[in-house]
């Protein structure tokens, strides 16, 4: 028997706000689930598998994800799992469950209250705990080291970075102008180069078989892959993203993409990703405004997949890419190809 075809059939996200909701996320998730399930035309009891992504360090508490299960209404009991990663990887786990024939439908969700702590400082704890984290290099400084390397290598310019910010803001309807004369937050990154801290959540519904065909709108998942690079910032060439390139190759990223939703929390990272993925000028990048206009930690990657699927489901695109990243300086990357029609030659 060949592997089942899997489609995105529902998506919803909470508004990205500078500070909103409880630390537990439960109250934020309830309406997001309702909306995503309505979009998919499913009742929650028709979900075979639930999978989530979040981080204890965002909440400052061990087992913080446990509470969020309350939002599901998990009684009678459910089949469920959790990754301590962006929920894009929870999506991957759920997708594999369906491929394995262990489920036909899955709801994937991510959540996190980034504003509960000092996010850029909290993220320093992702770095090597022996020789790097004790120096508390914050996430913006780490991204700046990458941006500097890309500037020095002539791969990006501050103007090109500003153009990414301006396009993103225009797409998201953010009126605040991009200012190349603004002071640096962490040289060479200015405010417009950095994703704002925001709270949020997102949910994605995927299905195979008749469930995938039942709803009115679907985006077929025709390729998914993810890879991770070494972390050592001085071990890597920070101007390349080998894990993104390898994931794109493994996922069979087509060269006739219409749209790409790239998870790039910093402007230079979008430029590095476009190069790593070989995305030409024809590809519309981040019509949502991207993570630069809303980067709710642990759901923003999943949301890229949901938003790319929206492009396909609405008929605005035939082929779309949803991308997610995790870790410092684009260390880990996931590629999801979404299409209006399943191609004949499935690998």
């Amino acid at each position: 028997m060949s592997a089942p075809r899997v489609a995105v059939i529902g998506f919803a996200q909470a508004p990205c706000l500078p500070s909103a909701g409880t630390t537990s996320g439960v109250e934020t998730l309830v309406p997001v689930f309702r909306e995503a399930l309505a979009d998919a035309g499913l009742d929650r009891r028709q979900v075979d598998f639930w999978c989530s992504g979040s981080s204890d360090y965002l909440a400052g508490r061990a087992f913080s994800f446990v509470n969020a299960v309350d939002a599901i209404g998990a009684y009678p009991p459910i089949a469920e799992s959790h990754v301590e990663m962006d929920a894009a990887w929870a999506f991957y786990e759920a997708y594999v469950k369906i491929l394995a024939g262990e489920a036909e439908t899955a709801l994937v969700y991510g959540f996190g209250k980034s504003s509960a702590g000092r996010l850029r400082r909290v993220l320093a704890l992702q770095l090597d705990p022996y020789v790097v984290a004790p120096l508390w290099p914050d996430s913006v400084s780490v991204a700046a080291l990458q941006a500097r390397a890309a500037l020095d290598a002539g791969i990006v310019t501050e103007r090109a970075m500003a153009e990414v910010a301006a396009r993103s803001r225009a797409d998201a309807g953010v009126s605040e102008p991009v200012d190349l004369a603004a002071p640096y937050i962490a040289d060479p990154l200015r405010r417009h180069d950095c994703a704002p801290v925001c709270d949020g959540a997102a949910a994605l519904v995927i299905a195979s078989g008749e469930r995938a065909l039942a709803g009115p709108r679907r985006a077929w998942i025709t390729g998914v892959a993810h890879r991770i690079d070494v972390q050592g910032l001085g071990e890597r060439d920070l101007t390349t993203v080998p894990s993104a390139t390898a994931a794109a190759s493994a996922a069979g990223l087509p060269d006739d993409l219409d749209v790409a939703e790239l998870h790039a929390p910093f402007t230079h990272q979008e430029l590095l990703l476009r190069a790593a993925l070989g995305l030409g000028d024809r590809v519309r990048i981040n019509p949502s405004g991207g993570a630069l206009c809303g980067n709710p930690m642990f759901s923003a990657g999943l949301a890229r997949i949901g938003l790319a699927a929206e492009q396909v489901r609405s008929g605005r695109a035939r082929r779309a890419l949803g991308h997610a990243t995790s870790g410092p300086a684009l260390q880990q990357n996931l590629i999801c190809v979404l299409e209006a029609d399943v191609r004949e030659a499935e690998s």
Binding site: L135, W136, S141, A144, R148, D152, D187, P188, L189, L238
Partner: peptide
């Protein structure tokens, strides 16, 4: 080989005055 500059060091960082990572 690469650098950045911070005007407002955060708690725990090596120096309490502006410095470069």
């Amino acid at each position: 080989t690469s650098w950045t500059w911070t005007d407002r060091p955060l708690a725990g960082q090596p120096l309490d005055r502006p410095f470069g990572f």
